[in-house]
């Protein structure tokens, strides 16, 4: 027998075709206007390759996959911007004699930011830290976190909100410096 169940992919591809306008609208709204068609094309190709197993909610799956592709693109762009800036700073005339390699500079920026963010997370109370960790690294649903920590859903929400705020503020410190 040939590998996999062809119907699973066909099913997802059918859902893709039926919901293409909604997906396109989402990708465009996410700021991918110029690349929106590319992103959807990539998504289509992925569906043909990936042969995911049975998917509980196909439309949600497609949005999630599109979001992942967008995020890869944004990450790549952020990395490129960081490289550019590091190179300009390292090779600019303002710092004669300081010939740190761009990659070293980049690592330093990343390390400093990481240290700031770690400090911000460390300053949270223990419950908020635990909730944030479960949310970010475990991918646990807020309801599940509430159950695990024995607190209400709204407590988890406000804990996570505080954690995000703290990290955002720590990151903003970078631009003001």
């Amino acid at each position: 027998m040939g590998g996999g169940d062809p119907r699973a992919a066909d099913g997802l591809q059918a859902v893709f075709l039926a919901n293409r306008p909604a997906l396109l609208r989402y990708v465009t709204a996410r700021g991918g206007a110029d690349a929106a068609e590319d992103v959807l094309h990539d998504l289509w190709l992925k569906l043909a390759d990936a042969r995911p197993g049975p998917v509980a909610n196909p439309l949600s799956y497609l949005f999630r996959a599109a979001e992942n592709l967008l995020r890869d693109r944004h990450r790549a762009r952020r990395q490129a911007a960081l490289r550019e800036r590091a190179w300009t700073e390292a090779s600019g005339p303002a710092a004669p004699g300081v010939s740190d390699a761009p990659s070293g500079e980049r690592a330093l920026i990343a390390r400093e930011e990481l240290a700031r963010i770690s400090a911000a997370i460390g300053a949270l109370d223990e419950r908020a830290r635990a909730a944030f960790r479960l949310h970010r690294l475990e991918g646990m649903a807020q309801r599940a976190i509430a159950a695990a920590l024995g607190v209400s859903l709204s407590t988890v929400e406000s804990d996570l909100r505080r954690a995000y705020r703290a990290v955002l503020t720590a990151r903003e410190g970078d631009d003001e410096a």
């Binding site: 990450r75 952020r78 930011e113 963010i117 770690s118 997370i121 690294l137 955002l168 990151r171």
Partner: peptide
């Protein structure tokens, strides 16, 4: 986008902790 980037950055910090 900023909030998502913060999440990404937090992951790195949490993993290092």
């Amino acid at each position: 986008e900023e909030a998502l980037a913060a999440g990404d950055a937090a992951d790195a910090a949490l993993k290092a902790a």
